[in-house]
Design a protein around this nucleic acid. Sequence first.
DNA 1: CCCAAATTTGGGATATCTGTCAATTGTGCC
DNA 2: GGCACAATTGACAGATATCCCAAATTTGGG
Lengths: 225, 225
Amino acid sequence: MTVQGLFATEASNLGKSARTRARLMDAAVQLFARDGFEATSVNEIARQAGVVNGTFYVHFRDRDEIAAAVALAIGQNVVRQLDEAMVGIEDAVERSSLATRRFIDLAASQPDWGAALVRAVLTFRDLRDSMIAYLRADLQRGVDQGLFTVAIDDLLIDTFASMTLGALAGRLRGDFGPEAGARVSELQLRMLGVPADRAREVCGRDVPALTLELAPLPKGLAKAG
Amino acid sequence: MTVQGLFATEASNLGKSARTRARLMDAAVQLFARDGFEATSVNEIARQAGVVNGTFYVHFRDRDEIAAAVALAIGQNVVRQLDEAMVGIEDAVERSSLATRRFIDLAASQPDWGAALVRAVLTFRDLRDSMIAYLRADLQRGVDQGLFTVAIDDLLIDTFASMTLGALAGRLRGDFGPEAGARVSELQLRMLGVPADRAREVCGRDVPALTLELAPLPKGLAKAG
DNA sequence: CCCAAATTTGGGATATCTGTCAATTGTGCC
DNA sequence: GGCACAATTGACAGATATCCCAAATTTGGG
């Protein structure tokens, strides 16, 4: 596996069309992350992917379509991995802390994906809404368990998400180090009404970091180009 | 005063060059707010300002220069008005609540300016840093007064700012109503360690709203076109 | 009121972008 | 190995962008 992106790696054992599509998506991720959606042209995506302009239009109708495809894929993969990593954890305080910390570490493990995700969440309402829905259950659980003493509504959830995204953005800018996830998670717990010493204790524990990978490949293949 | 923007209003009694420049800046604010910096062309700014393309380049070297000018002016004006509205308030809890609530209400009172401000803070590091510096003093004051029980560092301040900006963005999207400022301020105070009942009490009080206006004009002029 | 200086205009040279299509090349199935 | 079909190429038309500049217009001090 060379420096190719995650999509291309995943598609490396598929047909040519899928591989080209994956390279276009990897190129789009990089450029979206660096320049934003609006500033990225179809031409540039094609050039970065090493194909000619016309090829792009075989795979995507226009820039919006590839943007949606990329945003959806990133969002789904991050949520899926987070979900898998949290099965069996019942305590809402633990879940909240794990979700925030792993989300940040996961997205920061692939800066291009992380930056594209931040931009996508700010740009695409659908993506934001779907990721926010994921949060609601955990926060409500904390209220049901009597651990959070705050009303769970859209504003609370949105604010919680803003804190997480802000810390992720700071990490991607290089302003914060790996401790950012634990720190912001502690602040979130305090906000929710968890006693300060419990918040500190939970966030002081190490969590094993995840690294971003796509849905696992079929069997024992996954050879490199 | 017609529907002209704030810059043009301010410049209405100045020379022609200043007025044209102001109209370009108003146009840029509107377009940046609607489409973002990257997606806005110089052509479009000039058209929206009612001048011909070439005129733009008399006043600004390129799009980045007008973006910086607009971001700086918006930031300075918002900070100046906030500052003026808080003289004489000593209690850090009150100051924190007032700052958040007035910031949000102020920026929401002129949605174009608000949206441009949100985008600018996310785009221009200088602007973010200067607005964040403004926060630090108030948060540190709260620690000194024994009211906040959290360490004041870059991450805390950045997180506090993310919460405020997130709530502002939600208001501009129409997701939240005028109560958003008070709600998020209460969450911030809880995060900082203010007891929940005191946070609720402070944020339950009404604050007189400010409306955005630029530095006052010289004397009794300010005629409308 | 007049004129020099300041300002704006309109259009042009050049570059890039989008989206399409006929022609070419490559793939994989039989 | 060869063939039918899928995928890619490269070029192009039309739109729009940037940046520049000589000519025309407007401004404001004398």
